[in-house]
Design a protein around this nucleic acid. Structure first.
Lengths: 222, 222
DNA sequence: TAGGTATTCGAACGTTCGTTCGAATCCTTG
DNA sequence: CAAGGATTCGAACGAACGTTCGAATACCTA
């Protein structure tokens, strides 16, 4: 019978169970990232872990629960790492930099989990989907409130902050489609480049500036 | 027997066949975008088109070919629209603006196809995958050469241009995850915002500027 | 070492999938 | 109206899937 690891067992046993659970979910993330969640079978997962097909159901109740745990784990890892490190920081520019750095560090160290989160989380259903969306929204709200603080409510409205936040998230979440460590450097370098592009644009402009910049040829053709 | 629409039939017949093929692929894009390619079945597609399950195999040889056609169609639509309109434009800033505008216009008018392209194209195999990647690379090279022209080879190297291009692609290709037409406006507005952010950042900085900006508190906490 | 719990497994179930195929139907052309 | 190709369909195939279940094994404790 399936054991409940939260009741009175020895610490030794629970640690072993948790370690193996973590191992199984990590391999599952690799398999899901490579083949796609729906195309990957528990049999593929069995091949990756060395365990039997049925043995996996000792660690999760369904394939969907495995997906949910992978997504929630990496999402909470980003959000809680950021919140923990941001507690001591008041300056909103520093907080923004920390958010980007944390996001990129964990994206690079957990690339497969991030791919699964970006690619497959929205195919969850019911309570699983609701909880992932709730955490995503908490993360999104953190970014928007930092951006609002940076702008000091002087310019722009909620819509522009929304577009700016989504633009930044898009740049960061697209990384798993192109990143190669030997070419693109580490999280600090990516943070410098992406935050550099984003910050100057976000701080410097009201939209009209860019419109003019894009429309005024520097080298008129005739 | 399956007809070959490219041999000597009347124009009337071919047009009807092509129209229905387009209809089938459009519905397929909707179904694939909503359920995901691997979870969507030809039976789902049959429900969406009103045709029978088997009837679809008159229009494509396999589910994978349907996916390939959807991806290639929207990808070529973007690339060829851009190349056609860019022929008359010399100024690289104008060309960049046109690339972004074209990408966003087609993203909004073909959101489901773009979601399928972003989400599922990399799960193609063999010749299909090779051809999609080739077209993607052609598009990527277009952007990089525009960016190189804008910078005039004065600063930066290939790596920085690569990061800048991927940052911009990320912002644009993430849209399908959040865009709501009643809130976020049309392609022109998105172009102004995204290009505004990107251009000021790309034109203005060498990385060190942003690093300082992010690290120098404007409101020291004590 | 004995007993019991934690863990793993082989085998099977029912379902759904992509694809095929021959027949049926539609539609144009002579 | 007759004929023949174009188009659509019902039915079925084998394969692969997620999940279950009782038995087998491993491991800890007494």
């Amino acid at each position: 019978m399936r054991a409940d690891p939260s009741n009175g067992q020895t610490g030794e046993t629970r640690q072993t169970y948790d370690q193996k659970l973590e191992f199984v979910l990590q391999r599952a993330a690799e398999v899901f990232a490579e083949r796609g969640f729906h195309r990957a079978s528990i049999r593929d997962l069995a091949r990756a872990t060395g365990m039997s097909l049925a043995g996996h159901y000792y660690y999760f109740q369904s394939k969907n629960e495995a997906l949910f745990r992978i997504c929630e784990h990496v999402l909470r890892l980003i959000l809680e790492s950021f919140e923990e490190r941001a507690k001591a920081i008041d300056d909103p520019l520093e907080r923004l930099r920390l958010l980007v750095l944390t996001h990129l560090e964990i994206s690079l160290s957990h690339m497969r989990e991030m791919k699964v989160l970006s690619h497959e989380a929205e195919s969850l259903r019911g309570e699983y989907l609701a909880r992932i969306r709730q955490t995503k929204k908490r993360y999104y709200d953190s970014l928007v409130s930092i951006l609002r603080e940076i702008r000091g409510d002087r310019r722009g409205n909620g819509r522009e902050l929304r577009l700016a936040a989504m633009t930044l998230f898009g740049s960061m979440n697209w990384i798993y489609t192109w990143y190669r460590p030997e070419v693109d450097g580490d999280a600090k370098r990516l943070t410098d480049v992406m935050l550099g592009i984003f910050l100057r644009g976000f701080l410097g402009g009201d939209g009209a500036t860019a419109r003019r910049a894009g429309r005024t040829p520097r080298h008129p053709s005739r």
